[in-house]
Design a binder for these strands. Structure first.
Lengths: 245, 245
DNA sequence: CGGAATGTGTTCGTTTATCGAACACTGTGT
DNA sequence: ACACAGTGTTCGATAAACGAACACATTCCG
């Protein structure tokens, strides 16, 4: 068995050699469909990829055969439901352990709670749970991405990343905030990723896994951030124990 | 603008022409990683695809570059977090409208509620919400798949599919159950997809979209299935109105 | 009505990207 | 120290992908 040199958690997709052209183009089709947030025609996709129309056509035919792409009523292309099934395999065990904890925390706190993991230089929300009486529309649905350098979850995650491995766009004030978060065990942010909302996040450190965090968002009332953090930390500990990490 | 002939909702990935080999193999890598439910080595993947090791290596390098595949601490391969971000684009608007409704229904009913859509010949769970005090561990996490011919959500979906387009494996008794569900407006099942649980589902008919359903699961207590169905139907109507379908 | 415009799907010769064997390297276990 | 299991790289042959051109359907105009 080989143990890879285990590079820093942030390594910006530095796959060395050349990528497979056809596969890469196929993935870019999916990326374009996800970005567009609307149904696209084959010609639009071909233009976005800068490839010939017949190339796009063949790629789409293949993606369709695997269920990753479907047609809407007008024959335009959208992402297929099978893609959701594939994505269920991402960090399956973490997801399974975190969901009940998020549900409990969300209802205890009356806040939307979510699980975030580090992906290269971005935070990706893997799961989120709204409380019984949702105070604010959830802006952190699963799959949401934003830079690690922004928001409470990002800071909680950066406490697990050596400063040398931080993304280049890390602001000057960030190091101080992250240090503070590391010392007291939780991070907070105001209006950073979601305008007019506060967020609190605690690091979720798992052995042999990408850095993660649990977070909660709430309207800027008189709520004590520290008590929110404490509740989140309890769930984080439970998850960590369950995963033996 | 072209309007496609709009084939039956179930058409078993009948992409006519030949598929792109490289892209198809790349997707199969993802499928294998999702199926395996554990980290795989390159050799294992090569064996599962029946391709040369160096082919698998190139595919994986490309998938890694796009963030769809990552390495665990031991250097083995797992699905990447970016895949979850991609999947967030699947039926984004439906998902957004359904989540608050599912949350409300789950807490009103005290049951796990979920949204299911038809994908070829299977049901795919797109979203699920556990109530405040989860009575049963959720076995219907997002991404779960099972045949349309099984379970309450499947029957609710089949009420939207002409009988001629049903999958060949549809049992004899099924037509009667689906007819009954169509008449009274909801379907139920016992121990079908989840042992020792009851399920109730209502159809969610959306214009120009794949057939869908809202469902709830509960322990077989004295609960009135009809009242559960009524609550689900209220959410279904709300979602349908919001999407103008 | 008719023609231009937009879009999908198919065919086919060319060539380029992919294939697959062989090799180098590294960490692990015996 | 050795074999082993695994990763990553190179390179010539070839098959798979490319891309131009065509056939067809539908919608939008004058």
């Amino acid at each position: 068995m080989t143990t890879s040199p285990s590079p820093s958690p942030i390594d910006a997709s530095a796959a060395s050699g050349p990528a497979s052209q056809t596969l890469s183009r196929g993935i870019r089709v999916l990326e374009q469909l996800a970005d567009a947030r609307r149904a696209l025609t084959i010609d639009e996709i071909a233009a976005r990829l800068s490839v010939h129309r017949s190339v796009a056509y063949r790629l789409i035919r293949t993606l369709e055969a695997h269920g990753l792409v479907e047609r809407d009523a007008a024959g335009r292309l959208v992402l297929g439901a099978r893609l959701a099934a594939l994505a269920a395999g991402v960090a399956r065990d973490l997801h399974a352990e975190a969901l009940p904890e998020l549900t409990a925390a969300a209802n205890d706190l009356g806040m939307t709670c979510f699980l975030v993991v580090l992906d290269h230089e971005e935070c990706v929300t893997l799961a989120s749970v709204e409380p019984r009486h949702a105070v604010a529309a959830v802006a952190q649905r699963p799959g949401t991405r934003h830079p690690v350098t922004v928001g409470a979850p990002g800071k909680a995650i950066l406490t697990q990343v050596p400063a040398g491995a931080w993304p280049p766009d890390a602001g000057t004030g960030l190091a101080g905030e992250v240090h503070e978060a590391a010392v007291r065990g939780w991070a907070e942010s105001q209006n950073e990723v979601i305008p007019s909302l506060h967020a609190v996040a605690v690091p979720l450190v798992l052995r042999g896994r990408a850095p993660a965090a649990l977070a909660a968002v709430y309207l800027p009332t008189g709520t004590e951030a520290a008590s929110v953090a404490e509740r989140l930390a309890r769930s984080a500990t439970a998850i960590r124990d369950a995963l033996g990490g």
